[in-house]
């Protein structure tokens, strides 16, 4: 089979009669449009990631004179795109050990860019107004007793545990099974759908149980309290089918394309130094998601008030 593909490829080579063309070293056709120095950043679909990119973009453009292109790609494909050089950097990664091993350790096409400074955490959340009525609801052991509260048309006779985008890391199906919970995982299919639904529930003060993550701006709009799952221990989530423990706390990481990391000049140096706090990120996220500022307006507003923070990132 291998031989045959090689033979086919060889024939095609003869036919085309030209040299090799490595499509993994290929920039976006929309990049470098004005002959300026350009950086392409990957934006993931959640607002926190948008906040990172917005501020980085603002500073790269206004302080360092770059032109920045952004591309929205899901997490795992973003690793592939980063490896191919179609994007130069991912600013917020929630931990993809498989991809890290493949691209950083084996292929060496991606370089680590240091920590973002924000620690991420995934968990199950209920709205705080519900906790006020039922204080014991925040322990997973009591969830079965409240299952009927969370029932929806979609979950049938069981309680509904709402999950979000398929691109997110989730063990919820296994958790529900292994913890013997009387719940049905309903996938909202996208973060947008999930947020919309949460806000609709919150508006009417209806009970809901949802997979959610911090830092996230939505906590400012809809206060939520985490439900305690069995404590996370190192390696307890090694087998995805047998997980019965909480999600870990993940220091979020930055990754750069290996070539960009070496030759990216000021931009690469800046992105490596880029690090801020959960509060900073949330401030920008909220401006984007809730006040509906454009990411650039939000970034400008933040930058105007936090010059001391970002001055340290400049090379």
């Amino acid at each position: 089979m291998r031989l045959r593909t090689t033979a086919v490829a060889g024939t095609l080579l003869l036919l085309t009669g030209c040299g090799a063309a490595d499509m993994t070293r290929q920039a976006s056709p929309f990049a470098h449009a004005r002959g300026a120095r350009t950086v392409t950043l990957s934006v993931q679909s959640w607002v926190g990631a948008q906040a990172n990119v917005a501020v980085a973009q603002y500073l790269l453009e206004h302080e360092l004179g770059y032109r920045v292109d952004t591309v929205q790609i899901d997490e795992v494909p973003a690793w592939d795109a980063l490896s191919q050089g179609r994007v130069d950097a991912i600013l917020e990664d929630w931990g993809h050990p498989d991809q890290e091993k493949r691209y950083v350790d084996d292929k060496k096409t991606i370089a680590r860019g240091g920590a973002l400074g924000v620690t991420g955490h995934i968990g199950w959340y209920v709205p705080t107004y519900l906790v006020k009525q039922h204080p014991d609801i925040t322990d997973w052991k009591n969830l079965n007793a409240y299952a009927s509260l969370f029932r929806t048309a979609e979950s049938g006779g069981k309680g509904q545990l709402m999950d979000g985008s398929p691109s997110y890391v989730t063990n919820d199906k296994a958790l529900v099974d292994n913890l013997k919970l009387d719940y049905q995982v309903v996938f909202a299919g996208s973060e947008a759908a999930q947020i919309t639904q949460i806000r609709q529930f919150a508006k009417e003060k209806k009970p809901f149980l949802t997979y959610w993550y911090a830092p996230q701006w939505l906590f400012e709009k809809v206060p939520m309290t985490e439900v305690k799952l069995p404590a996370h221990k190192e390696g307890c989530d090694a087998d995805p089918a047998k997980v019965a423990c909480a999600y870990p706390r993940t220091p979020l990481q930055k990754y750069l394309n290996a070539d960009f990391s070496k030759q990216g000049g000021e931009a690469a140096a800046f992105l490596k130094k880029f690090a801020w706090t959960t509060e900073d990120q949330n401030e920008v996220s909220l401006m984007i998601a809730d006040q509906k500022l454009t990411p650039q307006e939000a970034a400008k507003k933040w930058a105007d008030g936090h010059a001391s923070t970002w001055k340290a990132w400049l090379p």
Binding site: L13, T16, A20, D22, T24
Partner: peptide, 17 residues
């Protein structure tokens, strides 16, 4: 193999480029 196999280097790569 996307950056090493001839099928990609000499055919698909050209299309892509």
């Amino acid at each position: 193999h996307r950056d090493s196999h001839p099928l990609f280097l000499h055919f698909l790569g050209h299309i892509s480029n």
